[in-house]
């Protein structure tokens, strides 16, 4: 190893650090949090009715899995979120690309999109409940409205960022306008679109849980609310952890998809 001091090695902005250290730092912080939690609860420093101990959460988790209720709630929540997110993405991505690529589409849609974008979707929940009830459709609608306009704006920014030189050189190679869209504009936005999906997926989780907290008869948010009513903080923690893990898995899936469909961004890295 070199003679660099600790300060030089770790406190120089952006300097690469050994992979082992990177991994260790992550473990250290998560481990410390877990340890503080265990010490605080097992020593009686905070009462377990207030903050459940790790083993209480684990037991509650095992119980919910063995009676099948956790799987049911997860199933409901995942259906709602993926349905809403999928519908939103499928429509928002092409609209966003056209909005970023064509000034006329931008001029036509921008006022509506920006108005809707600044409406907090949570304020629409009461209206949606009145209109379509508290079932699957309402959750899908909340997620859709929450992500759709954001996705349009973010994707259109990505499309607008595609350099005109790329179009010009394609024209001189004989491309028609249709080919410019399908062979240049769309592939050029792919990477940014995937980033947009990854970010908006995180928001979709928030909207879902809020919608389920407000009114639902199943789902993880509902499960959390039921635990609160039953004065069962361990149940609440199970809900929170499950949501966290599902989010983590989704995020990893996005990273994996990106590597798969954008090999050119990862070559030599």
């Amino acid at each position: 190893m070199s003679t660099m001091s600790f300060l030089d090695r770790y406190l120089t902005p952006k300097l690469a650090i050994p992979r082992k250290t990177e991994f260790g730092a992550g473990i250290l912080v998560s481990g410390t949090i877990l340890a503080c939690w265990a010490i605080a609860t097992y020593t009686g420093f905070v009462t377990r009715d207030f903050l459940p101990a790790p083993s209480d959460v684990w037991n509650s988790f095992v119980e919910k899995v063995s009676n099948g209720s956790l799987q049911k709630h997860i199933g409901v929540s995942l259906t709602e979120i993926y349905l809403g997110f999928f519908l939103s993405s499928v429509i928002a991505i092409p609209i966003g690309i056209f909005m970023g690529g064509f000034k006329i589409v931008q001029a036509a849609l921008e006022p509506v999109v920006n108005f809707m974008r600044y409406l907090p979707v949570t304020s629409l929940i009461p209206l949606l409940i009145l209109w379509i009830g508290i079932g699957l459709e309402e959750k899908v609608a909340v997620i859709f409205l929450g992500t759709f306009f954001q996705q349009i704006v973010m994707v259109s920014d990505v499309a607008r960022g595609v350099h005109a030189d790329l179009f010009n050189v394609s024209y001189t190679l004989g491309a028609t306008r249709g080919q410019i869209v399908s062979r240049v504009l769309v592939p050029a936005t792919l990477s940014g679109v995937l980033d947009t999906l990854r970010v908006t997926m995180g928001w979709a989780w928030t909207f879902l849980v809020v919608a389920e907290l407000v009114a639902a008869s199943s789902g993880l948010g509902y499960m959390i609310l039921q635990s609160m009513r039953g004065l069962d903080p361990a149940g609440i923690f199970v809900g929170i952890f499950v949501i966290g893990f599902l989010g983590l898995i989704t995020d990893m899936a996005f990273k994996w998809i990106k590597r798969l469909v954008l090999p050119w961004e990862y070559v030599g890295k």
């Binding site: 350099h163 030189d165 790329l166 010009n168 050189v169 024209y171 001189t172 190679l173 004989g174 240049v184 592939p187 050029a188 792919l190 954008l262 050119w264």
Partner: peptide, 18 residues
């Protein structure tokens, strides 16, 4: 308008990164 009989090599390469 542009056409394939007049090819262009731009200064900034403008290759298709994908």
């Amino acid at each position: 308008k542009p056409g394939p009989e007049r090819g262009m090599v731009p200064q900034n390469y403008s290759l298709f990164p994908w």
